[in-house]
Nucleic acid binder design. Structure first.
Lengths: 240, 240
DNA sequence: GTCTATAGCTTGATAGAC
DNA sequence: GTCTATCAAGCTATAGAC
């Protein structure tokens, strides 16, 4: 040991002063979850490339190296974030429309009822599930519009649920052609993800008359708008 | 001139050997445009943070430093890309609906006619304007879904045109409430930008039955879907 | 206007002590 | 599991020759 190394102290250097700042009452798997939460928040706001591992680590209150320890590459972290809530979300939607179909007397199902059952879960999670779910909604909205991997990612996680919806819609609109149903759903999909993104655009456009965050109202409008749209597009003889 | 400067030649040093590789028949402002084209392409695919100045320069076939020479900071380049076609696009839409309103006899305007006039320009540019316009459409789609600056950016460039559309729709649906019109438009906006993004999602969902790129068909469906949606949502006594 | 060269940072990822 | 330390690579942006 050189003189320089020991400068200022004749004892060994003071041991690391315990863990620094951030209080970490780390329970089991809590670090992992806090990294996912931070990543979800940041990715939803700035996209995949707009976020650095270091920012995620800082917001989670953990060390940069830990992010790699838990998730490996950055892209794997993104996928883990996307996957975490997709299952909850979709299972709930499928359960809701299945329940509606089961509990409604034959011939009394309505488009409005079906769409309401299908759309309510994401709206409710976004409204009452805490900030994580709001971030997730925004992440889905951005991903749906992403030309690079949006189509593929959305299809992988969400299409099974949507196919089931379309199956049930076909019972309500028995004369509808397959193509009509898909194009109609496509219109609904755009409306849904834009709304869940809550970008604040509608607030500006309407001069404050409508609020993006008013998802209760948004859902009501969407059900009526889309139900009418489906009917118009799927009516026999309506297509060109 | 020092001896060193003249080393290897007793004449003046050979002049720069002409411009290297890339054939550049650079007309006036052509370099600038090629940078914009390259940036538009890349930004539309990977977003602002997913693109580097170096990639833009490489795709444009120019030097990295030139990008800064023409546009300054990276963000200014993005704005220049976004601005370039916004005016064309919007002026055309406003002209189209104004013309429709002017040339249609009093009381014979329809929602379908109005929406068709409004939606056709972006669809037509995307279909027939060349790759640049397709990239631009995808860029707008992504921006509309962007929580960080999407609401603000879209509002700045596109809201005046939309306000004019809503004004004219009010003539067709005179009993509609202001809020109903805005919420209805919000649903249409989501459908429109998702469709123009052509992410390929519909292709997968429908198992190839529908093609994202078939914008002619997409536009027809959208007009009918949205017109019915507006009517349902704006009908007197329809709201909650 | 176009190039070379580089300053000054930040990035994703890993090695290795504890 | 968590930290320190670091690497090689990449980035934006600018200075300055031509």
């Amino acid at each position: 040991m050189s003189i320089k190394d020991a400068a200022g102290s004749d004892e060994a250097r003071p041991a690391r002063r315990g863990r620094p700042p951030k209080a970490k009452a780390a329970g089991i798997g809590e670090t992992r979850e806090s990294i996912l939460d931070a990543a979800e928040d940041l990715f939803s706001k700035h996209g995949f490339y707009g976020v650095t591992i270091r920012e995620v680590a800082r917001e989670a209150g953990v060390d940069t190296a830990l992010v790699h320890y838990y998730f490996g590459a950055k892209r794997a972290l993104f996928d883990a974030v996307f996957l975490r809530r997709a299952e909850v979300w979709n299972n709930e939607r499928v359960d809701a429309i299945n329940r509606y179909a089961r509990e409604t007397p034959q011939g009394e199902m309505t488009l409005e009822g079906l769409l309401d059952a299908f759309l309510r879960p994401p709206f409710q999670w976004s409204l009452k599930g805490g900030p994580g779910w709001k971030h997730y909604s925004a992440l889905v909205a951005q991903t749906n519009a992403n030309p690079a991997f949006g189509g593929e990612t959305m299809a992988r996680y969400f299409d099974p649920a949507i196919r089931r919806l379309i199956e049930l819609i076909r019972q309500v609109l028995p004369d509808a052609r397959e193509v009509d149903l898909y194009w109609a759903y496509h219109n609904l999909s755009g409306a849904l993800t834009l709304t869940l993104g809550e970008t604040g655009r509608l607030d500006r456009l309407s001069g404050g008359l409508c609020r993006s965050g008013d998802l209760e109202t948004a859902g009501d409008y969407m059900v009526r708008f889309a139900a009418a749209g489906f009917r118009a597009v799927c009516a026999p003889g309506a297509s060109g």
